[in-house]
């Protein structure tokens, strides 16, 4: 469903703030896979997600989604396949529009936006039902502006909006990290349910080792713009969160080395 081949990305090339964010990523995600993506800060997890979503174009390499080469397609084009939920609950909704209007916008993903038609009575009834499932007391607030909702309510709504128009791929960027524990649990629950029901291919960035192992069927670990671990099946099942933490501890040692030394070590140990 998603295929990345040799994807490189440098931000601010030539500048002294240059960041080599993606260093030759090769990744294949099969249809129906639910990948959890972990890594240290600045390892390139979110950048990888953004590369798939089309927030920027890679310097080198190709990206294929659902069989289409989307390497040079802008984000709004890819939106027909890809839906996203951001870490910040404010990012996924339009605060001055009402709940119903936001849902209508979400429903238009991948469809033409005509200057006629619009929010009808029947779709409102449908939104009512959909929203009820979120168990966030949103069913009576279809006409409230998003700005009046809590972060948990907004994030749950964002999730619903992401899956509403049946995308092929769902990209989740630490989407429970900024929520209170109760809302986080509810959103995580909904995520699993939606992915299963709608047979979505999902990639989720997380900082929680428990969540990384608990959710999904595959865990990918990134360090310094490269994928260092790709855990599936038995290997993944054997691991505990503590094992992952240990792996990270090892990786942090590596990060402290100078880039040159790192390259030498890497060549030697390969």
């Amino acid at each position: 469903m998603i295929r990345l081949v040799g994807v490189h990305k440098r931000f601010f090339p030539g500048d002294n703030s240059e960041v080599y964010a993606l260093r030759g990523i090769d990744l294949q995600v099969a249809e129906g896979d639910f990948v959890t993506l972990i890594g240290t800060n600045g390892s390139g997890k979110s950048t990888l997600l953004n590369a798939i979503a089309g927030s920027f174009f890679p310097d080198r390499g190709t990206i294929t989604v659902a069989g289409d080469d989307v390497t040079k397609r802008p984000d709004y084009w890819r939106a027909r396949y890809i839906a996203r939920v951001f870490q910040n609950p404010f990012s996924g909704t339009a605060p001055d529009l009402t709940v119903a209007e936001n849902l209508r916008l979400a429903e238009l993903r991948g469809k033409p936006r005509h200057p006629w038609g619009g929010l009808g009575r029947s779709s409102r009834a449908r939104y009512g039902d959909e929203v009820k499932r979120l168990e966030m007391q949103l069913e009576d607030r279809l006409d409230a502006t998003i700005g009046t909702l809590s972060g948990g309510q907004r994030q749950a709504l964002t999730l619903l909006m992401a899956v509403m128009a049946d995308p092929k791929v769902l990209l989740l960027d630490e989407h429970t990290a900024a929520l209170d524990p109760k809302s986080a649990a509810q959103v995580a629950k909904l995520t699993v349910a939606f992915v299963r029901e709608r047979k979505l291919t999902a990639v989720m960035v997380t900082h929680s080792m428990e969540q990384a192992l608990e959710l999904g069927n595959r865990t990918v670990m990134m360090v310094l713009g490269s994928i260092v671990e790709d855990l599936v099946e038995q290997e993944r099942r054997r691991l505990t969160p503590d094992d992952l933490v240990e792996k990270f501890a090892d990786l942090r040692k590596v990060e402290r080395l100078t880039p040159e030394l790192r390259e030498v070590l890497r060549a030697e140990y390969r």
Partner: peptide
């Protein structure tokens, strides 16, 4: 209105 109100979200939702 969505594009003006939240461009990031609008782009992610397929709005140019």
């Amino acid at each position: 209105r969505g594009a003006g109100n939240n461009p990031v979200m609008a782009a992610a939702g397929g709005v140019n």
